[in-house]
Design a protein around this nucleic acid. Sequence first.
DNA 1: TGCTGGCATGCACATGTGTGCATGTCAAAC
DNA 2: GTTTGACATGCACACATGTGCATGCCAGCA
Lengths: 119, 119
Amino acid sequence: MGFAHHAGPGTPVTTADARHVARVMSALATPSRVRILARLREGASTVGELALAVEMEQPAVSHQLRILRDLGFVLGNRNGRHVIYGLYDSHVAALLDEALRHIEHLRAGDTTTPTEEHA
Amino acid sequence: MGFAHHAGPGTPVTTADARHVARVMSALATPSRVRILARLREGASTVGELALAVEMEQPAVSHQLRILRDLGFVLGNRNGRHVIYGLYDSHVAALLDEALRHIEHLRAGDTTTPTEEHA
DNA sequence: TGCTGGCATGCACATGTGTGCATGTCAAAC
DNA sequence: GTTTGACATGCACACATGTGCATGCCAGCA
């Protein structure tokens, strides 16, 4: 009755794959990390700048950056006293864009009203 | 020194956007939901079939299906005594593929060894 | 060498969340 | 109408996780 099949790239998706996907996608599962990545998409910056931009305490930003680093989303290297962070590569930006495009797509068809929209 | 800029589609990504993205992407942030979606990508199926496929208790599957429904990922309609679930549209499958493609991409460059691979 | 700035790390805690178990609900079969 | 099958819901709990606070570490500067 009109489901979306797709049949995909044939990939059966093993249990290990599922766990891996979940781990990686969990990077985008919290507003703070999304904001950090979004800010980094506009250009590399230091931890302090990020903290100001996303309005978080510096340690909190460092913690999230560590997670994003372990997941291969960002990459930081020292420059004097600062550590400059940036997106690992353009593929990360692409994934972010895909996510944004997805919610935009949902906003169009708006299936079930996100549960909260009370401003 | 070689960061990935991108400058994106100009979207500044508001705080609300970040929260929305996080909410939506959290659907892919757990292995069980990824497995459910992966199974559904191969074709629609009933809750019982899903439970068997992903090796979860039926109530657990129902709970996750409810989440996936609220997020607009899946869609279920009754057929006799069964409720047949399927991906909401091909865009969901596309997002899943993008996620799989991403981890595959990481596996190639393998930046920081996912912290656990001891199996 | 001592001091300050910039990040990272440890620890503790509050919160969110996935799952098991029991139960409720609805449709089909008798 | 009663019973059975399939799924949904409520509740409780264990667990993971994000953040604040204090502290440690390292580079640059006087």
